[in-house]
Computed example of a mutant assay.
Amino acid sequence: MNLLKLIEAFKKQSVLVIGDTMVDKFIWGKVGRISPEAPVPVVEITKETETLGGAGNVANNITSLGAKAYVVSAIGEDNTGNSLIKLLSEKNINSDYVVYDAHRPTIIKTRIIAASQQVVRVDREIKGSFAHSTELKIIKNIEQLLPKVNGVIISDYGKGVVSPKVLTKVIALAKKYKIPVTVDPKIENFKKYKKVTTITPNTKEAIEGMSARNISTDADIENLGRKILKTLNSESVLITRSEKGMTLIDRNGRVTNIPTRAKEVYDVTGAGDTVISTMTLALAAKADLISAAEVANFAAGIVVGKIGTATVTPEELNKTITEFYK
């Protein structure tokens, strides 16, 4: 399939992202002395920034690629929640279906950085199941949105939005409407993602999710992928393997190894979000699995060459692919 035509088709797609949204806050500063109260550095703050984290960053990748993104999630009735909605709006991400829960805070992860080094990270969150009423609202919003979209991403960070009931409902509706549903898995929930179109674990997630041992060779990875397919009864699995690229295995047992397209690797933060976003958009645009994985691989190669949680644009993808095939 022509990858450039595929990228052009992205702007006609709309994707529903279901999962745990959060705010990533960065406090930047400099260190000039050690505290007299304890053997810790004193950070003098120079600036503060906030970005979308979790499922919000997945949605950000969708809109960056020119498509429309909807988010179904649950946040608290607090200032952080207001900040998150504002961040979604700034990125042209539809937040009309985000549910508010008065009993849970909006997740915020605060990183204090000095001299380009992370000094400490502070998380404010409550994990676990949401109230039954909140879960029902999430399911209702999913039911309303599914007929409107071309693809679904389940972005599970294990905070509670992707409950067993939500997962069952999403997969059943996606099958009904014949749209692809992809999963960025959480290790502890790995074996619950049954009958999805594609699951995109990295090597660590694939090994630990299946409680596998002695995985080292390409053959080991391929066999592990086949076991994942059999266990989940899914259509395909795309295992991302850092410098070794990706391994795609479909339900017929066909294996496609795709070497990395990264020229330089500065930061792998958010690369998984870019992979699943690009892969899902390609499948939504009716691409075959191999073409979808190839374009996702090019996107990952671009994003790891950037510092921090980054996204990819259609222009960047077009340029990279054109130069590669010259």
Rank of each mutant, 00 (worst) to 15 (best):
L3Q: 13
L6Q: 14
L6T: 11
E8C: 00
E8S: 14
K11Q: 15
Q13F: 02
L16F: 00
G19K: 02
G19P: 04
T21S: 14
M22K: 06
I27G: 01
K30C: 05
V31Q: 07
R33F: 03
I34W: 05
S35L: 06
P36D: 02
E37P: 03
A38K: 07
V40Q: 05
V40F: 07
I45D: 02
L52F: 07
G54S: 06
A55W: 04
G56T: 09
N60M: 13
N61I: 09
N61Q: 10
T63R: 08
S64W: 00
L65A: 11
A69I: 02
G76A: 08
E77R: 15
D78Q: 09
G81L: 07
N82K: 15
I85C: 01
L87Y: 03
L87N: 05
N94V: 05
D96N: 15
Y97S: 00
D101S: 13
D101Y: 03
A102M: 05
R104N: 08
R104T: 08
T106S: 12
K109P: 04
R111N: 03
I113L: 09
V120N: 03
V120D: 01
V122I: 15
I126N: 03
K127L: 10
S129P: 04
S129F: 14
E135C: 02
I138D: 01
K148E: 14
V149T: 09
V152E: 00
I153N: 03
I154E: 05
D156P: 10
Y157N: 05
S163D: 05
T168S: 15
A172E: 15
K176N: 12
P180W: 13
P180Y: 14
E188V: 13
K191S: 14
K192F: 10
T197P: 11
I207Y: 09
E208N: 13
M210A: 11
A212L: 15
A212N: 10
N214M: 14
S216C: 10
D218C: 00
L229V: 09
T231G: 02
N233A: 15
L238M: 12
T240K: 10
R241G: 07
G245Y: 06
L248P: 07
I249A: 04
G253E: 08
T256Y: 11
P259R: 01
A262N: 01
V268K: 06
V268C: 05
A271S: 13
T278V: 12
T280V: 12
L281A: 06
A287P: 12
S291A: 15
A292K: 10
V295Y: 02
A299M: 05
A300L: 06
G308S: 04
T309Y: 01
A310M: 03
P314G: 04
T320E: 13
T320H: 06
F324S: 10
K326L: 15
K326Y: 12
